[in-house]
Design a protein around this nucleic acid. Sequence first.
DNA 1: AATACTTTGTACTGATTGTAACAATCTATT
DNA 2: AATAGATTGTTACAATCAGTACAAAGTATT
Lengths: 241, 241
Amino acid sequence: MTEANRPLPMKTDKISELTTNRLSVYLRCLNELSASGVETVSSQSMAEQFNLNSAQIRKDLAYFGEFGVRGVGYYVDDLRQNLLKILGLTQRHNVAIVGMGNLGLALANYHGFNRQSFEIVALFDDDPAKIGTHARSRQEILSIDALQVVIREKEIDIVIIAVPAAVAERVFEKVVEAGVRAVLNFAPVHLHAKPGTKVKTVDLTISLESLSYFLAKPKSDSVNVDYSDFLHVEGERNGTP
Amino acid sequence: MTEANRPLPMKTDKISELTTNRLSVYLRCLNELSASGVETVSSQSMAEQFNLNSAQIRKDLAYFGEFGVRGVGYYVDDLRQNLLKILGLTQRHNVAIVGMGNLGLALANYHGFNRQSFEIVALFDDDPAKIGTHARSRQEILSIDALQVVIREKEIDIVIIAVPAAVAERVFEKVVEAGVRAVLNFAPVHLHAKPGTKVKTVDLTISLESLSYFLAKPKSDSVNVDYSDFLHVEGERNGTP
DNA sequence: AATACTTTGTACTGATTGTAACAATCTATT
DNA sequence: AATAGATTGTTACAATCAGTACAAAGTATT
């Protein structure tokens, strides 16, 4: 079974986020392979090229179906299409950014996102001096008062919160109230997400302090963070403590 | 034993990064408590206030010493000082940012870092049009050719890489060659760190794709990511696969 | 001073995660 | 067609991690 259009599978329920984060890594690897003209790849070959574990690749993929061909490996483009589908990247996501400080502005102009899947369709701030201006010749910055209306009008399904910690929770509540279920949070606070909503927090402070700890600890010997450091929302054991 | 100036402990070796990341969270909680004038706090009280597990707090702290007083709890300021010391935040870190694109510029002006512990002392880029200009009235942007000299002169011990994926590895090698052992990487690539060097990668693509997966999966029921989503470099089981 | 009460530090248990090993199954070759 | 070779999908195992339970050790009270 090697066609890309298989009905997507079964119990995608109990699948760990560590697994799905690795799918993103695999997808990136496959993109490279595809660009290089490679047509098939074995889990072992992929593992060697990208510092991964072949068994883990196979197991991660096996949660979602049988994408490989025994004796051959995986068809690069086929698997790539499957991963796109699994990760929900075959459909366009409309993204809004709230908070046009330095970080928000940078994200608004960031070219690293997968442009085919994520489109930034609205920018918000509460500073009257900023509202109405354009973020580097792109989107107009809207008043945060229009947040909920615009979210519904433009069918925004992902919101990036880049506001100061003090107001993050309030913004979050408004966003959720408007029907958004997925939030990428850069404020260094805990946002209390209710069931059915997902918050992914990127905490730069913790990242830096982690490096500080590494430098400070007595025996700073031999820490080789491999591809594993792509998996940066691990923890998440269970939802309600 | 409640004084802040205890000799820092023992086998800080086998301590998981999940644990040390949580220390950053605890430190943040203690900052809040201290600012509110709270003098002592029990692990249970802290757990309730910040959605944590009290036993985990105690266990995490116990790796590094006995900071609490039975029957009382922890002295907020004392524990705070201890955590600062454990995390290496009592000494100033000189930070450089390489890559003055949108993200690099934003980070250069970001006010979210702990200003007391981290000072951004140098900015680099390879674009002649940018070199010599000043990033929003602050640091002058230096040529990347001066990277290694400046790292040594200014005693830079942490480097933030915010360059395109294609050149990240090359920058990383130069940085390491100059003696830097701690790198915060925003490029969506795997940097091959040798023992004794630590790389922490923040991958925005994976974060977004994780949200996309959540929205796409059939039964998007009830995912309550609690404080655990602060622990965003989990994985990292062992170094050499 | 002795007892009751509180909270820590830790041993134990259960769950999760990652790695190794192997049987099943495909392709290629004789 | 049958055999050899390769690679997947899966099972079994080992290591790590989080949560519970409890003894140890302090404070407050009588």
